[in-house]
Amino acid sequence: MTSLWNGDYLFLLENLIVKDFKIRYRNMSLGVFWSLLNPLILMGVLTFVFTKVMPNAVPNFPLFVLCGLVPFNFFTVAWNNGTISIANNAGLIKRIPVPREIVPIATVLSTTIHLGIQIALLLIITLAFGRGVNVYWLWLPLLWALEVMFVCGLVLATSALDVYLRDMRYIVESACTVLFWLVPIFYTLDIVPRQYVTVYEFNPLAALILGLRRILYEGVSPNGDAGLVYKLAFTSTVTFIAGLTIFSRLKHKFFDYL
C-alpha cells in the first residue's frame, strides 16, 4: 500500500516536534526548568545514599552519577512517550494519510530538545568539578546521535506493537525500572563480574554512559580497548533497521485496530 501523502517531510517533522514541545511546556509555570529539576534531584538523592548511607570509593560522585542520569532520563522519557504516540494520535492516524513513521520519530526528536537542556547542565557541572574541555568532547555529538537512533528504533517497534497490544506501554515502563539497575548509573563497570562486561558494552544505553564517563569524567577516549563506539554504532544501527522493519510490517492494520 503506497501512501497518497506526498508532502514535505521536513516541514511536517518540524511542526510535529514544535507542537510536542510547546504543548509540554506551555501550561507549566516552571517551563523548561522541569528538564533540569529531575536529574538534579536524583543526583542529590543518589549522592546522599552513596556517600553518606552506603559510602563508596568513587570520587566526585555527583558528576559520576549525572553522566548516567542524563542519558537514562532521556531514554526512559523518549521510549515511554514514543511507545504510546501512535495510539495517542489515533485521530490523526485514522483521518489523515500522513506517513505513519513520522509520528513516533517526531515524539523522540521533540524529547531531544529536553535532552539538549540536560546536556548543557551536564557540561556545566563537568566544568564546575574542574574537568576541562578535552579533544574527546568531539565524540559527544556522535554518541548522542547514536543514542537517538537507538531510541527511534526501539520506539518504532514498541509503538507499532502498542496498537495491537496495549499492554506494551506497561512492559516498556517495567523495562525502564529494571534497566535503572542493570545499567551502570550508580556503580562502575569495574565491579561488574568479567563475564558480563561484554553484555554491558553491547547494551547501547550502558555503552553510552560508559563512553560519556570516559570523556567527561576520566578525560580519556570513549573507545577504550574494546572499541566501545563501534559496538554502540553496531547495536544502534541494527535496532533502527529492525524497528523500521517491524513498523512497516504492522502499519497497514493500524486503522482497523485503533
Partner: peptide
C-alpha cells in the same frame, strides 16, 4: 500554529 501544523499534515510545503 494549528493552521501551520494542519497544513504540514495535509501535505503543504513550507
Amino acid at each position: 500554529e494549528n493552521i501551520r501544523l494542519n497544513a504540514s499534515l495535509l501535505g503543504f510545503s513550507r
